[in-house]
Structures are given as structure tokens and as C-alpha cells.
Computed example of a mutant assay.
Amino acid sequence: MAEEEETENEEAASGGGRGKKLLVVGAVVVLALVVGAAGTWWFLWAGGEEPAQATAGDEASAQSDKAEEPGELYKMDEFVVNLARSSRTRYLKTTLQLELDDQSLVKKVEKRQPQIRDALIILLSNQSVDGLEQMEGKYQLKRQVVARLNNLLGDDAVRNVYFTEFVIQ
């Protein structure tokens, strides 16, 4: 009889263990549902601070759009220069357009045209054919032109330079 009582006690204990496991799993599922519902409510209806953040974001977006607007374009006359460091005479024929920071710089560029052309002729004629045949060489030349012109016209007067014609012969 003692053996039968022990077997009944073990069965009762193991049955109670299943009930506890089921209760714990149920509690975890209910907790997950409550947390999910609270999170959904928070993101959909309780975001009272979002309009202020959106307004600040809109202002930043408007400023970046303004910065991305193209500047005033100024077309330079054609340049034809001898290229340096080549075994035979090689020429570069190019036309540039300057992207200026604002309209007021057009008169300044027109007034300083001789200095600008001089600086660009010296810079262009110092380039090698090998360097200009590579894409990176052209990008490096663009950066050098912008830097040289900003030295002449003032910081950030020229935003970018565009080659509208670029022929090496």
C-alpha cells in the first residue's frame, strides 16, 4: 500500500507541474499581448511630441533643399592649351561653366575675367595627358579649378565647375 500512495503522490505532483507550466506560458502570452497593445497605442495615438519633431525636420529639409538648389551658372569662353609632360605636342580644348553661389557674383566674375582666365590657363596647361585620361584625374582637376577660383573670388564663391566640352588631341 505504501507503494500505491507514493505512485499517487507522484502523479498528483506531475499533474500539478503541468498546470503550473500551462499557467506560466499563459501568463507570458498575456503579458506579450498587453505589451504589444500598449506599444501599438503609444506609436499610433500617444505621439504628442511628433509634430514638433516633424516641424524641426521640415525646417532642416527645407534648408538642405535650398543648399541643393543649383547656383547661378556662368559660361566661360573656350580654352585651348598645350598639355605638359607629353612626348609630342598635345592639346586640351575645354569649355567650363561655373556654378556660382549667387547672382551677385556674376558681375565680379566678369570684372575679374583676365585674372580668372590666366589662372585657369596656367592650371590647365600644367596637366598631363595621362592624368586627364583617367576619370579621377578629371575630378581632381575640377577640385583644383574650384579651389583656384575661390582663392581669386573669395571663399565659396564657386560651388562647382562643369566641363561642357573636354577634348584631348
Results as ranks from 00 to 15, higher is better:
Ala2Gln: 11
Ala2Asn: 15
Glu3Trp: 11
Glu4Lys: 14
Glu5Ala: 15
Glu5Gln: 15
Glu6Arg: 11
Thr7Arg: 12
Glu8Met: 12
Asn9Ile: 14
Glu10Gln: 11
Glu11Ala: 12
Glu11Trp: 13
Glu11Val: 14
Ala12Cys: 14
Ala12Glu: 12
Ala12Gly: 09
Ala12Met: 15
Ala13Thr: 14
Ser14Asp: 08
Ser14Arg: 06
Ser14Leu: 10
Ser14Gly: 09
Gly15Asn: 10
Gly16Ala: 11
Gly16Glu: 10
Gly17Ser: 13
Gly19Pro: 04
Gly19Thr: 08
Gly19Phe: 10
Gly19Tyr: 09
Gly19Asp: 12
Lys20Trp: 07
Lys21Thr: 02
Leu22Cys: 04
Leu22Arg: 05
Leu22His: 02
Leu23Asn: 07
Val24Met: 04
Val25Gln: 05
Ala27Asn: 01
Ala27Phe: 08
Val28Ile: 03
Val28Cys: 07
Val29Tyr: 04
Ala32Leu: 15
Ala32Met: 15
Val34Asp: 06
Val35Asp: 10
Gly39Gln: 11
Gly39Ser: 11
Trp41Met: 11
Trp41Thr: 09
Trp42Ser: 14
Leu44Glu: 05
Trp45Ile: 04
Gly47Ile: 01
Gly48His: 08
Gly48Arg: 12
Gly48Lys: 11
Glu50Ser: 12
Glu50Trp: 09
Pro51Glu: 11
Ala54Asp: 10
Ala54Trp: 15
Ala54Leu: 13
Asp58Leu: 15
Asp58Gln: 15
Ala60Leu: 12
Ala60Met: 10
Gln63Asp: 14
Asp65Met: 14
Asp65Ile: 11
Lys66His: 12
Lys66Gly: 09
Glu68Arg: 12
Pro70Tyr: 06
Gly71Pro: 03
Glu72Lys: 04
Glu72Pro: 01
Asp77Gln: 04
Glu78Val: 02
Glu78Tyr: 09
Phe79His: 02
Val80Gly: 00
Val80Phe: 00
Leu83Cys: 02
Leu83Thr: 01
Ala84Asp: 00
Ser86Phe: 04
Ser86Trp: 05
Ser87Val: 06
Arg88Glu: 05
Arg88Gln: 06
Arg90Ala: 03
Arg90Thr: 03
Tyr91Asn: 00
Leu92Thr: 01
Leu92Tyr: 03
Leu92Glu: 00
Thr95Ser: 02
Thr95Gly: 00
Gln97Met: 07
Leu100Gly: 02
Leu100Val: 01
Asp101Gln: 05
Asp102Val: 12
Leu105Val: 00
Lys107Pro: 10
Val109Asn: 06
Arg112Glu: 13
Gln113Pro: 08
Pro114Tyr: 03
Gln115Leu: 09
Ile116Gln: 02
Arg117Tyr: 10
Leu120Val: 04
Leu120Trp: 01
Ile121Arg: 05
Ile122Asn: 13
Ile122Lys: 11
Leu124Gly: 00
Ser125Trp: 00
Asn126Val: 03
Asn126Tyr: 10
Gln127Glu: 07
Asp130His: 07
Gly131Gln: 13
Gln134Lys: 12
Gln134Thr: 09
Met135Pro: 04
Tyr139Met: 08
Tyr139Ala: 08
Tyr139His: 15
Leu141Ala: 03
Val146Gln: 03
Ala147Arg: 05
Arg148His: 01
Leu149Ala: 02
Leu152His: 02
Leu152Glu: 07
Leu153Val: 02
Gly154Cys: 05
Asp155Cys: 02
Asp155Gly: 06
Val158Ser: 03
Val158Met: 05
Asn160Glu: 06
Val161Glu: 07
Tyr162Trp: 10
Tyr162Gly: 04
Phe163Leu: 05
Phe163Asp: 01
Glu165Gly: 08
Phe166Arg: 08
Phe166Ser: 02
Val167Met: 08
Val167Glu: 09
